[in-house]
Nucleic acid binder design. Structure first.
Lengths: 140, 140
DNA sequence: CTATTTGCAAAACATTTGCACTTGC
DNA sequence: GCAAGTGCAAATGTTTTGCAAATAG
């Protein structure tokens, strides 16, 4: 590991001229290695154990800042925004039975960022697979 | 044209044993040929001109029913659900400047419904292209 | 010291629900 | 006639906002 997620994000926050508040550091630490694609409110719940006075507003504010500096990605899923600390090129598989969201490798083929679709300049590509995950399908 | 959108949906509603209320017919008619991907509230606003007593609940209820019988597709975009009367295989290009959503043909390549991704059974594939649309990019 | 950031509580939306009334079939 | 559907208003859930107090740099 060249640089941990936290270390990289702390540098990015500093580079953007943002303050390293304990709340922000706590959000960064909570996000680190989290594959569950949590919502802002789930993170709030989780962090309230250690920081009882942390407000939801701050969570939203921090996640917004992290998204802007490239520290995480927003996913619009089922009426609420979920956050993904994995900003590398990948897609998502959403189970229609249990609701779980799993990262999957981007399959080759199809338009990628930088290309043009009938005058539309593509900057980001998002692919969502809806179906039945291994645990739900296997047990059926 | 073999059968208009409205005619097809009216048949589908009947086939599903659902009642053909004036409200439902109005929603079907409003959706017909609409490429703007409206939200439920936008449709409510639009329909209130002709049906002043139509309630939001009914719009949500009807759009839900239409989605279930394959009359439209739901799109989760920017905090609210948008509805697309085009249920044929296609993708969406979302302009990050003006927010417009345009249908685009599905480019070949990549996983399609029916295939399997590491144990995940794919039933639907959704691709979203974010970037700058022709009008916003051309005028820059 | 001071511009940012925070906590809190209220506001703003989007969507769902409960229930009495209405209506398509 | 009756189950399904409707209007309305209240409840729910998510995210934003306004502002005084706190604090990182």
């Amino acid at each position: 590991m060249v640089l941990s997620y936290s270390a990289r994000l702390i540098d990015a926050l500093r580079a953007a001229g943002l303050k390293l508040t304990p709340q922000r550091l706590a959000v960064v630490e909570a996000l680190q290695g989290d594959q569950s694609h949590p919502t802002a409110l789930e993170l709030h719940e989780r962090l309230r154990a250690r920081f009882p006075m942390m407000s939801v507003g701050t969570i939203y504010n921090t996640l917004d800042a992290l998204t802007r500096i490239g520290g995480c990605r927003e996913l619009q899923m089922g009426g609420s925004t979920r956050f993904d600390p994995n900003v590398d090129r990948h897609d998502h598989a959403v189970c229609e039975r249990c609701g779980s969201i799993r990262d999957v490798a981007r399959s080759p083929g199809g338009p990628e960022p930088g290309c043009e679709l009938a005058g539309f300049q593509v900057e980001h590509v998002e692919r969502i697979y809806r179906g039945i995950c291994a645990s739900c399908g296997g047990a059926s």
